[in-house]
């Protein structure tokens, strides 16, 4: 009980820290009289982001008296497996499905089948291209990019920035980079964007990109990163060049390595999504749909901005599963 109260207190502080122009809350509905069975599909549980989300689904379902059937595709490459998992959920006549799609276009036919079977689909985090979903719940990637831009506007005011925009053609990363650039160009004439690079979201790619940037441009004041792994690579390159802490790093997402580097002052700002919140809201939306209540077509979960100053106090209960938690 005390832990919950502390968590709530920290949550209030955390919420004021966030600049997010997203939906502030999506309240828990009353406990339904019936126990619903909800199928949940995530791409990869080895990613802490989805482990946190799994916790959100499970814990929220328990509070609403619902049962969760959790399926892990085991990686974004296993589209055929996720399709089979959805078909099996349809055959077991679950009441609703929460889907984090491993592929936008690839999940279109199977979501059609769920719709044909009368099973509502709550689309979470990674979007399917099928328009027949009942509701979409995700972070607003435009806000993520703008939050980083605002931060540099306030902290840096004047200087040169390079951009690591992550995988080309991946919509979430593209949106972040685009909105970052647009906000800077519109509001901060003092900040110049020197160059932009697309690459896979891996540390070695980030390292290589940053090394090349350092060779190309003699004066770099900040590095924008669409995703966490390229940011970690950039940090390594800056450390090797003796510039860690002198060049600002802003990045999206918050894995344990990112957290350590924020504490060390190497990563200046991390804009953090709330996967636990995504899971909770998805279950709430599913229950609302099943109880024949109106739901919006789209919900944006809030984001947090974390810096060295608040990394010790920021509430991560909406970001990560409790330490040692495992899905049953």
């Amino acid at each position: 009980m005390r832990r919950i109260l502390v968590a709530l207190g920290v949550l209030a502080v955390g919420a004021t820290l966030a600049w997010a122009a997203s939906h502030e809350s999506y309240p828990r509905p009353g406990k339904p009289s019936k126990s619903y069975t909800i199928g949940v599909l995530v791409p990869q549980l080895t990613n802490p982001h989805f482990l946190g989300q799994a916790y959100g689904y499970m814990d929220e379902a328990e509070r609403l008296g619902a049962k969760v059937i959790l399926h892990d595709a085991g990686g974004y490459q296993y589209l055929d497996k996720q399709i089979a998992q959805i078909e099996d959920l349809i055959a077991s006549k679950v009441d609703a499905i929460c889907l984090v799609a491993v592929s936008g276009p690839g999940t279109v036919p199977v979501v059609d089948r769920a719709a044909a079977a009368g099973i509502p689909v709550v689309n979470v985090n990674v979007m399917t291209n099928n328009e027949k979903v009942a509701i979409r719940i995700r972070s607003d990637d435009t806000v993520i990019g703008e939050t980083m831009a605002r931060f540099l506007h306030e902290r840096l005011k004047k200087g040169s920035v390079v951009m690591q925009s992550g995988p080309a053609g991946a919509s979430a990363f593209e949106l972040r980079a685009k909105s970052f650039r647009a906000w800077i160009e519109k509001n901060t004439p003092g900040i110049k964007i020197l160059g932009e690079r697309h690459s896979l979201n891996t540390p070695d790619q980030g390292l290589k990109n940053m090394e090349d940037f350092l060779q190309t441009f003699p004066q770099i004041d900040a590095v924008y990163n669409s995703a966490d792994f390229v940011a970690i690579g950039a940090a390594q390159a800056l450390k090797a060049a003796g510039k860690a802490g002198k060049v600002m790093i802003v990045t999206a997402d918050f894995q344990p390595d990112t957290e350590r580097m924020v504490r060390e002052g190497v990563v200046t700002q991390a804009v953090v999504q709330q996967p636990v919140t995504m899971g909770r809201w998805a279950i709430r939306a599913a229950v609302n749909i099943l109880e024949k209540r109106e739901v919006p077509k789209l919900l944006y979960t809030p984001i947090l901005s974390v810096t060295k100053d608040d990394v010790a106090t920021v509430d991560l209960s909406t970001v990560r599963a409790p330490a040692g938690w495992k899905p049953k």
Binding site: L79, P105, G106, T107, V108, V110
Partner: peptide
Amino acid sequence: RTLSGQPT
């Protein structure tokens, strides 16, 4: 089944 071409 996937109504798309998937390299993975």
